[in-house]
Amino acid sequence: IGSLMYASIFGNVSAIIQRLYSGTARYHTQMLRVREFIRFHQIPNPLRQRLEEYFQHAWSYTNGIDMNAVLKGFPECLQADICLHLNRSLLQHCKPFRGATKGCLRALAMKFKTTHAPPGDTLVHAGDLLTALYFISRGSIEILRGDVVVAILGKNDIFGEPLNLYARPGKSNGDVRALTYCDLHKIHRDDLLEVLDMYPEFSDHFWSSLEITFNLRDTNMIPGSPGSTELEGGFSRQRKRKLSFRRRTDKDTEQPGEVSALGPGRAGAGPSSRGRPGGPWGESPSSGPSSPESSEDEGPGRSSSPLRLVPFSSPRPPGEPPGGEPLMEDCEKSSDTCNPLSGAFSGVSNIFSFWGDSRGRQYQELPRCPAPTPSLLNIPLSSPGRRPRGDVESRLDALQRQLNRLETRLSADMATVLQLLQRQMTLVPPAYSAVTTPGPGPTSTSPLLPVSPLPTLTLDSLSQVSQFMACEELPPGAPELPQEGPTRRLSLPGQLGALTSQPLHRHGSDPG
């Protein structure tokens, strides 16, 4: 009997000691992992102490058991019943959930998450997105703005933001810190809205009876308010094209079509300037034949640059190039080494500058006005007194259609001029006259002087055409309008007829 009692007592005591040691061994194993994590990542002392304290409290609170892992091991129907039991206190005593059906309560219970916070733990920081609604079931918390405590909340209090009033989550206007050990039930806004969409009859009752104890939403960050730039940057990543407008005076608003859609830094370009900076079609017209890549860069430059609305530039004389043409100036200075066709295309550029300027006046029909002061630039669209967005969009579309028509007509005119030049060069190729044979009589004449090349004649003739079109064909006081194609086609051969009437002889060394 004594040996039996000794064996039973010894066996029970050893089993008890073994169970104690097993729990202690698990605790030390998990604690060792936490300390190894702290050492590996070199976490500083204040945060390291918070980690160790939280682990110790969580171990004593749950005995080292992962409740979520245990809950996920059950089937979904059983999980709903378990969640309904775990959140029964909240669902029974909170006013917004009263009167809900059994199915609605089960769906809500599945969406709730339980959070346990030790003292000093910050649940929400200032500036964080308010993605959830919090219900306090135990403990107390404090809300701070800077170093000032603005509120202390306790059991059955609710904090967050009214989700039904805002389409997008706002930002917190303060820090939420736990004063004691707290148990909180939180539900994400997407989950709550999903359940309320499934039960629309409960939705009206819920929003009407929901009383948020403390609204954390920062009202200064609401979209459309003066301080909402940061919020707009976070939620409006896919922005449309940006529009900046110059201020319109009362006198300017009476004149229709007073602005032109141009790229940034293009205030001095012609009315047909689009795409790359520098001139019509993204580059100076005089350098068009020598740089074919300008047409390839036109599309990307047009689509990537934001639109700006600026006044037209001052008018340019008909014979003056659009500006920024070092290529043609070098050719004029060193005409001995340049291609003979460069002079002809220089005359073509003069005609283009004249036609572009006159067509700009035809479509816009307003006098040039000086540029406004820099303080009046970049007025935002949302400022008071601005035109409605639809009106601005319609004006932009009208300007775009005008620019497209202008570009089409300029292309047709350019093709006409090039065809005339090619026809003239085919009839009378460039050549130098040879020395004529002296006559049989004693009164022999001296050799004839060489005839100037055709490109120079073409430049003079085209300059005469531009001056003739600019000065004589337009009646005084009438708006400057571009001439039609047949009129220009008839004027060019008439001007060139006198020049080509002389018999030109080919030089023996000319390969053409």
Rank of each mutant, 00 (worst) to 15 (best):
Asn220Glu: 13
Ser291His: 04
Ser346Thr: 13
Phe202Asp: 13
Asn220Arg: 14
Leu454Phe: 11
Ser260Thr: 13
Glu258Lys: 07
Pro306Thr: 09
Trp207Val: 09
Leu403His: 04
Asp460Gly: 08
Glu332Asp: 12
Pro429Leu: 09
Gln255Thr: 08
Ser342Trp: 11
Asn173Gly: 10
Leu309Gly: 12
Ser335Gly: 11
Ile187Leu: 09
Ala478Glu: 13
Asp330Val: 11
Ser209His: 13
Ser509Asn: 04
Gln483Ile: 13
Gly497Pro: 13
Leu492Pro: 03
Ser140Pro: 01
Ser314Tyr: 12
Gly233Ala: 11
Lys242Thr: 09
Leu133Pro: 02
Leu366Ser: 08
Pro280Ile: 14
Gly224Ser: 11
Asp147Gln: 08
Ser284Lys: 06
Ala261Met: 13
Leu243Met: 08
Ser140Met: 11
Met425Cys: 13
Cys471Gln: 08
Gly494Glu: 13
Ser394Met: 12
Leu462Met: 09
Gly441Arg: 10
Asp147Lys: 07
Ser463Gln: 11
Gln362Leu: 08
Thr249Ala: 10
Asn164Val: 04
Ser273Asp: 13
Pro162Cys: 07
Leu231Asn: 11
Asp128His: 01
Val428Cys: 06
Leu396Ile: 08
Arg386Phe: 07
Cys338Arg: 08
Asp204His: 12
Gln495Ala: 10
Asp330Gln: 03
Pro264Thr: 10
Lys242Ile: 13
Met328Phe: 04
Tyr134Met: 04
Leu165Phe: 06
Pro223His: 09
Pro372Trp: 07
Pro475Gly: 10
Arg239Ile: 13
Glu407Gly: 10
Asn215Glu: 02
Phe352Pro: 11
Arg506Trp: 04
Ser236Val: 12
Leu130Glu: 01
Met469Glu: 12
Glu320Ala: 07
Ser375His: 04
Glu296Phe: 07
Ile351His: 09
Cys338Ser: 09
Pro486Met: 15
Glu407His: 04
Pro340Lys: 15
Leu420Lys: 13
Ser314Asp: 08
Phe135Ile: 06
Glu194Phe: 10
Phe345Tyr: 04
Lys155Thr: 13
Ala261Gly: 11
Ser305Thr: 05
Leu474Ile: 13
Phe135Glu: 01
Pro482Asp: 10
Pro317Asp: 14
Arg239Met: 09
Arg361Glu: 08
Pro438Arg: 11
Gln364Tyr: 07
Gly154Ala: 08
Thr219His: 12
Glu320Asp: 12
Gly347Gln: 15
Leu129Asn: 08
Ile141Cys: 15
Pro442Val: 11
Arg395Lys: 13
Arg274Leu: 10
Ser286Glu: 15
Ile158Thr: 09
Leu396Pro: 05
Leu341Gln: 14
Glu298Asp: 15
Asp175Trp: 07
Arg302Ile: 04
Gln467Arg: 12
Phe135His: 01
Ala412Asn: 04
Gly234Glu: 11
Arg368Leu: 08
Thr337Pro: 12
Val435Thr: 09
Ser314Ala: 11
Ala267Leu: 12
Ile152Gly: 01
Arg368Phe: 12
Ser313Leu: 11
Thr249Met: 13
Val348Cys: 09
Arg177Tyr: 03
Cys338Met: 08
Pro322Glu: 10
Asp175His: 08
Trp207His: 06
Pro285Cys: 06
Asp336Cys: 06
Gln483Leu: 08
Pro280Met: 07
Pro447Leu: 09
Val417Thr: 01
Phe245Glu: 14
Asn164Asp: 08
Pro455Thr: 11
Pro511Arg: 10
Glu142Leu: 05
Ser294His: 13
Ser290Leu: 04
Ser273Gln: 07
Leu309Val: 07
Glu298Gln: 09
Val392Lys: 05
Glu161Cys: 01
Thr416Gln: 06
Ser290Tyr: 04
Pro370Lys: 09
Glu232Leu: 08
Gly282Pro: 11
Ser203Asn: 11
Ser294Phe: 15
Asp157Asn: 04
His205Asn: 13
Phe159Val: 05
Ile152Arg: 06
Pro271Thr: 11
Val176Met: 01
Ser501Gly: 11
Ser137Trp: 05
Ser463Met: 11
Thr219Glu: 07
Gly146Cys: 04
Ser140Gln: 12
Cys471Lys: 08
Arg189Glu: 03
Gly512Ser: 10
Thr426Gly: 08
Gln364Phe: 13
Gln255Asn: 14
Asp330Ala: 11
Gly270His: 05
Phe312Ile: 12
Arg368Asp: 09
Thr337Trp: 06
Ser334Trp: 05
Glu211Thr: 10
Thr437Leu: 08
Asp191Ile: 03
Leu327Val: 03
Ala415Ile: 05
Pro256Met: 11
Ala478Ile: 12
Val176Ala: 06
Leu210Val: 09
Leu377Asp: 09
Asp336Lys: 13
Arg387Ser: 12
Pro430Gln: 06
Pro493Met: 14
Ser244Pro: 08
Gly439Met: 09
Lys242Gly: 11
Asn156Glu: 11
Leu327Gly: 13
Leu216Tyr: 01
Pro285Gln: 11
Gly146Ser: 13
Pro372Ser: 09
Pro326Arg: 12
Leu418Tyr: 03
Ser382Gly: 10
Leu427Glu: 08
Glu473Met: 11
Gln364Leu: 05
Asp175Asn: 07
Met469Ala: 08
Glu298Trp: 15
Leu193Asn: 13
Ser294Gly: 07
Gly323Val: 10
Lys242Val: 14
Phe354Val: 07
Gly139Val: 02
Pro438Lys: 15
Gly441Met: 07
Gly224Lys: 09
Gln502Ala: 12
Ser466Gln: 11
Leu184Arg: 02
Asp190Glu: 12
Ser290Gln: 15
Arg237Lys: 06
Ser349Asp: 15
Gln483Val: 08
Leu449Ser: 08
Glu194Ala: 13
Leu179His: 06
Asn220Ser: 11
Val465Ile: 10
Lys333Trp: 13
Glu258Gln: 09
Leu196Asp: 01
Pro384Phe: 10
Gly508Phe: 06
Pro384Met: 15
Pro271Phe: 13
Gly227Trp: 10
Arg241Asp: 13
Thr443Val: 10
Pro447Lys: 15
Gly224Trp: 12
Ser303Arg: 10
Arg237Ser: 08
Leu130Ala: 03
Ser433Phe: 10
Val176Trp: 01
Leu403Ala: 05
Asn173Ala: 11
Lys186Arg: 11
Asp460Val: 04
Asp183Ser: 10
Arg316Trp: 07
Leu184Asn: 01
Leu327Ile: 11
Pro429Met: 06
Gly146Ala: 10
Pro493Glu: 06
Phe235Tyr: 11
His185Ser: 08
Ser273Lys: 04
Ser313Val: 06
Ser313Asp: 09
His505Lys: 10
Ala412Phe: 04
Leu496Ile: 08
Leu179Asp: 01
Leu129Ile: 07
Thr437Met: 11
Val451Gly: 07
Pro289Cys: 13
Pro340Gln: 11
Ser394Gln: 12
Pro321Asn: 09
Leu410Thr: 04
Met414Cys: 04
Gln362Tyr: 13
Ala498Asp: 14
Leu492Tyr: 04
Leu381Ala: 04
Pro384Leu: 12
Gly265Phe: 04
Pro503Phe: 11
Leu427Asn: 08
Gly268Ala: 10
Gly263Val: 11
Pro388Gln: 04
Gly356Asn: 05
Ser394Val: 11
Arg405Ile: 04
Asn164Phe: 08
Gly512Leu: 04
Glu254Ser: 11
Gly127Arg: 02
Ile152Val: 12
Gly324His: 09
Arg368Glu: 10
Pro430Glu: 08
Pro317Ser: 09
Cys369Ser: 07
Pro438His: 07
Ala431Gly: 09
Thr337Phe: 11
Asp157Glu: 03
Pro223Tyr: 08
Leu133Ala: 01
Gln400Pro: 03
